[in-house]
Design a protein around this nucleic acid. Structure first.
Lengths: 185, 185
DNA sequence: AATGAAAATGACACAAGTGTCATAAATGAG
DNA sequence: CTCATTTATGACACTTGTGTCATTTTCATT
């Protein structure tokens, strides 16, 4: 062994996330990233040879964390509320996923594999929500007259309700109440 | 007068919309657009000298149409349902607005003005939703125990519930039912 | 048919990100 | 201490989109 690495994976992912949130996909390139990391641009190529590889690798990582956390929903007393709480903690996930359409899908085999993984993660997320909802239906707590896909879609859509204007815990409480009992009086 | 224009505004906006939906912001540039329009790239510069100007002009146009349509909500028997119906008709609006963060805000004075207008439109949209909801509250039909901003946020978020897996009218019906009465049985 | 204003176009210089590679720097092992 | 190996770096060639402008094309008017 010789010469320590100046870049570590965790920092790279962190700066990647920051840069995308700040500048969007268009503003994400190795020059800007290298400046944030304090290394030469070419150094990053020793780790990821295409920005699509880095971004998708980071996204897989992010989704894995979220899915892992979702697993706990079943153990909670109020599983749906736990999901909403999770959304509040990973509010930036939504913004991250929005850039997916801009990624060159067939950049490299590694990118393709990562995108495959992302879709698998996404499917798993929806499946976990569905399982949570079905369990609620079986307990007679949740309605059964609406297509499951629509209900899952609404639960996922709530991640988009702006969170900035109120405290995180109040946001969770209000969104949960609205989601469960609706706008009606 | 002399020499007819080969480009008309309506077609330009239409192809702009198509290109952004197909390729996202990164894939939207005058070369691709000119190919779609069947003209030389430099021709487009006679109409818009920066792509940001074109995009923002188109977005203002789109938002104006939506806001205009929202005005009719008050005349409807079920104003909230009318809004959801509107979302189903302008499902692509959401995708269009997502690219806003990627637009270079201070490109030209015209761009700045358009962005200002967009924010104004956006505010007006939220205001119209709010007015609709307040009216429902005054009639005693809608709840008053949740912050108005959260309720407005949820109504706007429903535009994101995937619409592809079902017919448009069923989507409207289901999302409306869920929004009004919630997941609970 | 001639004319001239408006529109379209291709060419050119430019800007910015990409990817590679030979070389330099760091560091643990012997 | 020096050496082998890993890592970092700057330089170079390349690609792609941008913006401008002189020239050409079109067409209503006369």
């Amino acid at each position: 062994m010789s010469r320590k690495k100046t870049i570590d994976q965790a920092q790279l992912f962190h700066e990647t996330e920051q840069l995308i949130l700040e500048s969007g996909y268009a503003g994400f390139h190795f020059k800007a990233l290298s400046e944030k990391m304090g290394v030469a641009r070419s150094t990053i190529y020793n780790y990821y040879t295409k920005k699509e590889e880095l971004i998708t690798a980071y996204m897989v990582h992010l989704l894995e964390k979220v899915v892992e956390n979702m697993g706990q929903a079943e153990m909670e007393e109020q599983p749906v509320k736990y999901l909403i709480h999770l959304w509040s903690r990973y509010a930036h996930m939504h913004q991250m996923l929005q850039i997916m359409p801009y990624i060159d899908q067939h950049a490299t085999p590694q990118v393709q594999e990562n995108i495959k993984k992302m879709f698998a993660m996404f499917t798993e997320m929806k499946l976990k929500i569905e399982r949570t909802l079905v369990k609620g239906q079986e307990r007679g707590e949740l309605r059964t007259d609406i297509q499951m896909k629509t209900m899952v879609g609404l639960v996922m859509a709530t991640i988009q309700v702006p969170i900035n204007h109120t405290s995180q815990s109040q946001w969770v409480e209000e969104v949960y109440q609205l989601l469960m009992t609706g706008l009606k009086n």
